[in-house]
Design a protein around this nucleic acid. Sequence first.
DNA 1: TAGTAGGTTATCATATATGACAACAATGAA
DNA 2: TTCATTGTTGTCATATATGATAACCTACTA
Lengths: 72, 72
Amino acid sequence: MKKEQIQINVGNRIRQLRESKGISQQVLAAMCNFEKGNMSRIEAGRTNPTIYTLYKISQALEVKISELIDID
Amino acid sequence: MKKEQIQINVGNRIRQLRESKGISQQVLAAMCNFEKGNMSRIEAGRTNPTIYTLYKISQALEVKISELIDID
DNA sequence: TAGTAGGTTATCATATATGACAACAATGAA
DNA sequence: TTCATTGTTGTCATATATGATAACCTACTA
């Protein structure tokens, strides 16, 4: 799978989980200590996040990191 | 959990899976298209890998990405 | 001994993730 | 309309991941 596809899959999964919790990018980003613009980029799959960034997001969403990346 | 601890956990998990397959860092790195020194850094937890780097390693190890990061 | 394999570590250049900021668009409410 | 909210996008500086190279160490083997 291409790098871009990985990023898009992860971004979509984060968006799905965020929306299921009914919170905005703004709020989720703040919980992770960064700005909404950066969260938008991650959800759009326009960046290749590090494991620690995904960890922070998973903590904010109250899920395991592995739930953000259920891809083969 | 601190960033460093995440990195160490992931590194340990990669090492465990690599050794269970009986291959060297050299070989695993080559399968991922990079050098053994870089794999050593990752296994030692001295870097904060991106999701795509973990994806390449997971493919080489024939496991899902989520198996590399079974941490809360 | 010398040579090989496996692993570690330092260093370098380059690419890019991170984080902040601002401008913008779309939506909905007052 | 005006205003606030939400999300997108571009840009910037800084930090750091990536990938390559080389030196080094240990253990093993010829």
